[in-house]
């Protein structure tokens, strides 16, 4: 069987993040390359989001499963650390899906990330009502990639996918 790169990417587009199932691994920008070595052999190169993200092992397993289902007999998952993953690689479609799911997407480019101490907190638009009258509740949230905010208008607390 002959597999094109496009075909493999269309398969990868069916693998989702176990913590945020509306996002595919392509939306997240963690697939760095695909190498078809032989007819039924493929190497998928992925990069972790956060160093300790426990979803990575599950994602690698799901990729393997998806490829085996599609007829590959040899599947190799390779991790690469450089260049370091950034939320800049998240697709626009992914950001829209996050918002509809109730998670505020990262709002700015990581290069503009404020690194200074004592900076003002960002006012992240509420994914429910769109208000920017929001506040940070906690820098750390339910997963490594999220922080907890609250809308002061509709009063709903919400997760924010941190700029990284």
């Amino acid at each position: 069987m002959n597999h094109t790169k496009e075909h493999i990417y269309s398969l990868l587009a069916q693998v989702t993040d176990p913590e945020i199932p509306v996002l595919t691994i392509l939306d997240l920008g963690i697939v760095r390359d695909v190498i078809c070595t032989q007819d039924n052999a493929v190497e998928i190169i992925i990069t972790p989001t956060y160093s300790g993200c426990p979803a990575m092992d599950a994602i690698a397993f799901d990729i393997k499963l998806k490829m085996i289902e599609a007829g590959f007999t040899q599947v190799k998952i390779t991790y690469t650390l450089s260049p370091a993953w950034t939320t800049d690689w998240m697709t626009e479609a992914g950001k829209q899906k996050l918002k509809q799911y109730g998670i505020a997407p990262p709002i700015e480019r990581s290069s503009r990330l404020n690194k200074l101490l004592f900076d003002q907190d960002e006012h992240i638009p509420c994914p429910q009502c769109g208000s920017t009258n929001t506040k940070l509740l906690s820098e750390f949230g339910s997963t490594a990639c999220k922080a907890l905010h609250q809308c002061m208008d509709c009063k709903e607390p919400f997760d924010y996918f941190k700029c990284h």
Binding site: P48, Y50, S51, G52, C53, P54, L81, A144
Partner: peptide
């Protein structure tokens, strides 16, 4: 979690 992830690398 970040520290343990860094340790693993």
């Amino acid at each position: 979690l970040d520290l343990i992830g860094q340790a693993r690398n």
